[in-house]
Design a protein around this nucleic acid. Sequence first.
RNA 1: GCUCCGGUAGUAUAGUCCGGUCAAGUAUUCCGGCCUUUCGAGCCGGUGACCCGGGUUCGAAUCCCGGCCGGAGCACCA
Length: 564
Amino acid sequence: MQHDGKAQAGPIVGKLLGEKAELRSQAKELTALVNEVLAEVNALPVDEQKRIVTEKWPETQEKKEKIEEEKHLPPLPNAEKYKQIVTRFSPNPDCVLHLGSARAILLSHEYARIYSGKFILRFEDTDPKVKRPGLEFYPMIRNDLAWLGCKVDEEYIQSDRIPIYYEYAQKLIADGNAYICTCVPDEFRKKSLQSEPCPCRDLPTSEQLERWQLMLNGGYKEGEAVLRVKTDLNHPNPAVRDWPAMRVIDSKRYPHPRVGSKYNAWPLYNLAAGLDDHLLGITHIIRGKEHLTNGVRQEYMYKHLGWEYPQAIHYGRLKITGAFLSKSKIVAGVRSGEFTGWDDPRLATFAALRKRGITPEAIKKMIIDVGPKPADVTLSWENLYSYNRKIIDPQSNRYFFVADPVKLEVKGLPKTFNAKLPLHPEHPEKGYREYTVTPNKDCQSAQFWIARKDLANMESGKIVRLMELFNVKIEVVSEGLVEAVFQSESYEDIRKTKAQLIQWIPVGEEYPCSVILQDASVVEGYAESACKTLKPDAAIQFERFGFVRVDNVAEKLTVYYSHK
RNA sequence: GCUCCGGUAGUAUAGUCCGGUCAAGUAUUCCGGCCUUUCGAGCCGGUGACCCGGGUUCGAAUCCCGGCCGGAGCACCA
């Protein structure tokens, strides 16, 4: 019925074979048979087909019920191998967290919860020079995680664990699985590209251990020596061959913000992260695919130590249209004053999203929908807004806001009006706010503030309704003032005519308000005076303007625009 | 250049491992309609996709080969 009465053989044969596997050996004959029947059926007019089907198989005409199901994460690989699932999120505290980290955080945490496992936060702050950690970021990161609803079961800081890395480095050297290389980088690279060992590789272990002591005691200057873990010099990927595990840092010049100048030798990522993943009992590593070759590198170290490598899941890069997610750009922009702070609405940091009234639930839902697949994704803000809208719409009270206010004078009022405006049209139990409009004694008029953009639809003679109040007929529209005359009170009157409904604020009931938009520009206007009792952090909707998050309630109201 | 990973509507995702019930589902955007004292929400409907080319097969989004496009890595960063 769905295809204009013309059926095709392929899907029908497919369905039959799918249901009755025993027919598969006779597939050719079956196809011929189906084609025969189809020729007959397709020759019939559609109406006739419909009649027959309805008569013989009425149940097929019933509409399928839609089953909406919550999206779930796919199961973790080899989860059954482990007594307890342990995941980790391991940021370098050199910047605040942003949306780009959301996959690592939320997937790691969510899987830990699904499997009743453990979620570990591990600060990877082992580079005091190039990606120097900032002390302020440690608590900010903890705070972001808490805001996202990710409870940290255990926390580790790698700069506290340097002696542990030393211990294993020494073992690797003593076992002949690592060596101190004093070659200049370029020379090593040349050798390595040709799958040849550098001169240091085959030095006796005793000499390696001497070099190791020298490295620890400051006997080498920056760049003079590096610890390398032996891999396979014939590995197809040159980047895997004898990778660097520890280097010398001039600790006087580049003191670490937490441990100062205590260490000269600092572990590199693959050594520190690789060791910790095992030592902390991580079972599943969820990280970006830029770490794929790091996994290959680390597996060599695991083999040297007789360890088994955890399950690794590599997800693709996450971008969001229009926002840059580069830590260095964020840091530079904030330091230079280009941005107002870590929560500048132009940034996609969690701090900024929070400020803009994006809920952690919305972010979580979106990330879980995106899932852990390795393809890159470019999210659209609309999508995030949609998730957020579903969450905040039911809880957001409604208020009037007139942007760029213009005065409206209404004459000919027959009486005093009381307007009772519901805080939420779908939830009357939330209550109301009320305004009384009393006509001026001399000329039966009253004055209001209305939004300038509503003037666009106004012309002399047109009827508009002040929402929940009364209808007015426009007489004169000028730059600074709109003059109108009272028309009628009943909403029903103008309902059929589909007259424009506009928001209004009685003159005297205005409360100055700044709305900070996503591009950090500011819209000035008046909110209604009922907004004076709002609490910071509340999500509200300015009707026909958008959802906003209340930021500051003072002489003036300050809100951040969330979305439509 | 070398090594690796991807490619389903504008966006995101399901399906791919294990070929058939996929004439490709879902969310969002967009477009119509309904409803509604917000241009919000809700409801109904619509537009819209398997990167390309070969092969295997009765049958390919799914398996194989080739190409194209995109991404990542190739640091004494993480």
